[in-house]
Nucleic acid binder design. Structure first.
Lengths: 248, 248
DNA sequence: AAAGAATAGATTGACATATATCAATCATCC
DNA sequence: GGATGATTGATATATGTCAATCTATTCTTT
């Protein structure tokens, strides 16, 4: 059987993969947000799948620890994880939420740099660890993959850039609006959405204390911008939230 | 004449370059901070040099404008420039200072994304514009260059990451300490150093108002941590500043 | 299985502190 | 000698801290 280099649909991946006991091919490699692996040739993909190993994490467990070096990249398959910086005086800053699919590359890929953030499981998480060596092999051999990898870095940069600006130039209401909009539009993609985070964590996404977050959430509630019942949040007036986000 | 792929010392570049009327080879391509072009083969380097065009900017001029797309990357050769976000209500945030050498890549390299920051000249600036196409050709053809480019993105990411954390989790004294240490250790690399920035700009590096910046600078002065006379700043007690930076 | 105790998280209020704003004065440079 | 930027002071506002209450959930006991 000769493998021809081409792109695969999810259906094709489902049918063809030789290692799909746990549906890993499609979930990890076929449809991550950044599409990192989407354009791999079939043999490359098979090789990658055969070399990965799957790991499960319980809520609260640390997946990758700040200030360590590891020679793996992690592909998320299922569950919700948070990427955050452990700052001074237990002040954390959550930079990013990963839901179902997503990829965390390691500094070691490039220049053995120390990882500046921690990744931990919020719900039960399934993910795959892949050796950086494999990735670098592909990077050298496959131009399209190299471009995908740069795109991945670029997207990461862009996201961090936005976060940086949002958190530094806006007042608290703007930051809370950003957090709510981020969760609805980028993560959960449905309107009354269930938030698996504590108020503390939501505050850490917005760079403020939990008390401040709660107060502003309440303001939004009394102004009928959102509805909120325990773990559920529903956006009622997205336009107004965007307005608040833009004006700081 | 056959060109062998190898690395060049600055002396070699000086002697060998065919296009070095304005010393561009060495300055732009030979020794940028991220070493992006350091490992290019000789013919590639010559091709790059022949295709670039040099531009001069006067203090205050905009080099690259936020929210535009351009298909060039810019290599700095001489002078000081600032990279900043034009935020809401004229609140700018300076992310980075470029002194003499440095490279700004464009989103268009990857996926036509809009540039999220402005770059402008602080002193007189000399720089080269190179078409993204050339860069992408090299990226495809030269594995080592591809790795260098990823390293460049990685460094950028890392720097932004640090900035993000510094600006969001620290109080003003920590942020001012960071700014002073950044200018001394990463930019000017000498101890009494001349600051070509206004207090307003220094404040924009530290994410605060100019009044707040001045007040904290004065505190540092009365505590004998720094000496400051007009445009000059001298660090007297670096240990103490680092302490302040770490503790927020 | 139901009731109650114990714990952790969410909310609220009073207050302290960090930071921004506005206005005035001072220094510096063409 | 204006004009621009730097500094200082007085004050307002944004945000954090601490403590108290409330709520929900888990755990224990019957």
């Amino acid at each position: 059987m000769v493998f021809v280099k081409e792109n695969f649909t999810e259906q094709q991946l489902d049918k063809q993969c030789l290692f799909c006991k746990d549906d890993c091919c499609v979930s990890c490699f076929g449809r991550d947000g950044g599409l990192l692996f989407r354009k791999l040739s079939r043999p490359d993909l098979d090789q990658l799948v055969s070399s990965k190993y799957s790991v499960r994490f319980k809520p609260g467990e640390t997946i990758l620890k700040q200030n360590t070096i590891s020679s793996n990249i992690v592909c998320f398959r299922k569950g919700i994880a948070k990427v955050y910086v452990e700052g001074i005086n237990d002040k954390n800053l959550i930079l990013k939420v990963i839901k179902d699919t997503g990829i965390i590359t390691s500094g070691i890929l490039i220049n053995n740099s120390i990882r500046p953030y921690t990744v931990s499981a919020v719900t039960e998480v399934e993910c795959c660890f892949i050796s950086s060596d494999k990735i670098m092999e592909l990077f050298s051999a496959d131009r399209q993959f190299a471009i995908s990898l740069i795109e991945h870095y670029h997207d990461m940069s862009n996201h961090m850039f936005n976060t940086l600006v949002n958190l530094t130039v806006k007042y608290m209401p703007g930051r809370v609006a950003d957090t709510i909009l981020y969760l609805k539009n980028d993560i959960f993609r449905e309107n009354p959405f269930m938030v698996p985070f504590s108020r503390q964590e939501l505050a850490e996404m917005s760079a403020m204390t939990k008390e401040s977050f709660v107060r502003i959430l309440k303001e939004f509630k009394t102004s009928k911008l959102i509805k909120s019942d325990g773990k559920y949040i529903e956006i009622l007036d997205e336009e107004a939230l965007i307005e608040i986000s833009i004006n700081g």
